[in-house]
Each structure stands twice: as C-alpha cells, then as structure tokens.
C-alpha cells in the first residue's frame, strides 16, 4: 500500500508541470501555431523562479511573478517572430529551446555555480496538507500535500475546458486554426487569437517551471525539464488538442514515469528503467497515430488523411 501511495504521489509530482504545458499548449495547437518551445519556456520559468528566489530572500511571491513574466515575454518573442513576422515557428521553437539553457548556463558560469540552490526556503513550508483527505488511501497522495501550483493545475483542467468549448474566445481560436479565411472574412483578428493562444501556453509554462524547480526542489540545474515539454506535445498530439483527452494522456505518461522511478530504486539496472517512459511515449504516440489513420487509404507519406 505504501508503494502505491508513493507511486501516486510521484505521479502527481511529474504530472503537474506536464499537465500545465499540455493545458497551455492546446490553444496554440488548435490555433494551428505549433509551439514546440514549451520545453524552453518551462525551463525559463524554472530558472527565473529559482534565480529570483536565490537572490531575494523571503520574497517568494516575487519569484512566482518573475517566472510568469519572463515566460510571457518569451511568448511575446515567439508571437512577434512567428505570427507577426510570419517566421518559421518550428525554428523559433527550437531556438527558444536552445537559447534558454544557453543563457542559464552563461549566467550560472558568471555566478560560478553548477546549480542554483535556494537555501532560505524549504519546500515543505508551501505544501498544502488537507485534513481528512490526507489520511484516505489513494486520494491522500493525489489531493493532499502538494504545493499551490499543483492545485492550480487541477483547477485549470476545468477552466481550459470551458474556455475552449463554451466561450467566444475558444470558438474563435478553433476557427482561426481550422479555416483562417473564414475567420478573416468575419472580421476576426486572427493574429490576435494566435498570439493570445501562444501567450496562454507561455503563461502555463511559467507556472510549470516554477512548480518543477522552486516548489518541488528549490533548486535549479540546467536541462532539468528533461523533455517534459515534448512529452506534453506528444500528449497534445495524441489527444488532438481536446483538453480532457490530452489530460488523460498526460496522466498516462506521468504514471508510467512514476512506476519506472519507483522500480528503479529496487532494481540494479536502475538507470535503464529511466528509458521506459520515453519508450512508452513513442509507443503510445504511434498507436494513437495508427488508430487515427486506420481507415486511411491514401498512399502519400504527407497526405493529410
């Protein structure tokens, strides 16, 4: 039983940043702006939150805010280059993914640090323990003892679902992605919707990074995101941008990861088990793709359906 609880708890630890990236990324996906910079944006959030916390003792709020602001800034850079100037969004995404660790590495070199710790702050102090629930098996590790952003991410599942399907904004974002001509003709400002979609993603990545580095570890090391941004993209692809389906895929990947981590403590070839989540992801992505195209009769490798 304790094993299961620990796996569940670790799943949530892994899930939070991934889920946030997914929930933020679906809007850009639906608006037909492929944002592969989720990874870099999340890393930026992680870096800035820890950096600010490291240098401003007892001003936790400032760290949250700075991380969010920097990610929004990156989102703006992405939007200006990709949407306003019509640059190649894949290349912009790659550039941001490379630029963030480069800048972080540069700054850490200047500080003569290999990783940035936050010494004054203990992560335990912000964990929210919910009475009654914390003692219930299974529910306990899922809903109690997590830092604030985890609860925000739970809430965002519902918020994003409503935003996507029940509001003007959501409808318009989907129209922009599906038939841009139609949107232009009816006077929708397509660029505005694309930019907002990217910014939602960027903001969520800021939260994700803060959770990953500051809230969970109070430590920053370069490349600590370890591909979570891409796993989020895979979840978005598998769920085709539907908030609920994408969330399910994110949960699946997180549980796989937690299970692999758990067993890697027991087995000697522990490092090798770390490959498992990545492999599972490729398999699930392939299965989802094969399933989507099971009825396809077209021959081209690039044909849409």
């Amino acid at each position: 039983m304790r094993g299961l609880d620990s796996i569940l708890y670790e799943s949530i630890v892994y899930l939070t940043p991934t889920l946030l990236c997914v929930l933020g990324g679906i809007f850009a996906y639906k608006a037909n702006v492929l944002n592969i910079a989720l990874e870099g944006m999340m890393l930026a959030g992680a870096f800035v939150s820890v950096l600010v916390a490291h240098s401003h003792e007892n001003k936790l709020f400032l760290a949250y805010l700075a991380a969010f602001a920097v990610c929004i800034f990156l989102g703006l850079v992405f939007s200006v280059l990709g949407v306003t100037l019509k640059g190649n969004v894949i290349i912009i995404g790659l550039a941001i993914n490379m630029l963030v660790p480069a800048v972080a590495g540069f700054v850490m070199k200047l500080m003569s640090l290999a990783s940035i710790p936050v010494k004054w702050f203990s992560t335990n102090s912000i964990m929210i323990s919910i009475p009654v629930i914390r003692d219930i098996p299974i529910l306990g590790p899922l809903f109690s003892g997590h830092p604030p952003i985890t609860y925000i991410s739970y809430l965002l599942i519902l918020v994003m679902y409503l935003l996507m399907y029940k509001t003007k904004f959501g409808v318009h974002v989907r129209v922009v992605g599906e038939n841009e001509d139609a949107a232009i003709n009816l006077g929708l400002n397509t660029k505005k919707y694309k930019i907002l979609a990217v910014l939602i993603g960027a903001g969520c990545c800021g939260l994700a990074g803060t959770d990953l580095a500051l809230e969970r570890l109070s430590l920053y090391t370069n490349n600590m995101t370890a591909g979570r941004g891409f796993i989020a993209i895979a979840a978005i692809y598998c769920g085709r941008g539907d908030p609920l389906k994408c969330t399910l895929y994110a949960i699946l990947f997180s549980i796989t990861n937690a299970v692999a981590e758990y067993f890697s403590l027991l087995v000697s070839a522990s490092l090798l088990l770390k490959v498992v989540p990545y492999v599972v992801m490729v398999v699930v992505l392939s299965a989802a793709s094969a399933l989507n195209r099971r009825n396809s009769r077209t021959r081209g490798a690039f044909s849409e359906n």
């Binding site: 280059l81 019509k86 290349i91 912009i92 550039a95 941001i96 490379m98 630029l99 800048v103 540069f106």
Partner: peptide
C-alpha cells in the same frame, strides 16, 4: 551558445 541560439531565432524569419 547564447549567440548561437540568437542566430537560430533570427534565422527563423526571412
């Protein structure tokens, strides 16, 4: 590395 990242970023636009 920073300059390299910036280069790729600017290379994205024509």
């Amino acid at each position: 590395s920073v300059i390299q990242g910036l280069m790729i970023l600017f290379l994205s636009i024509q």
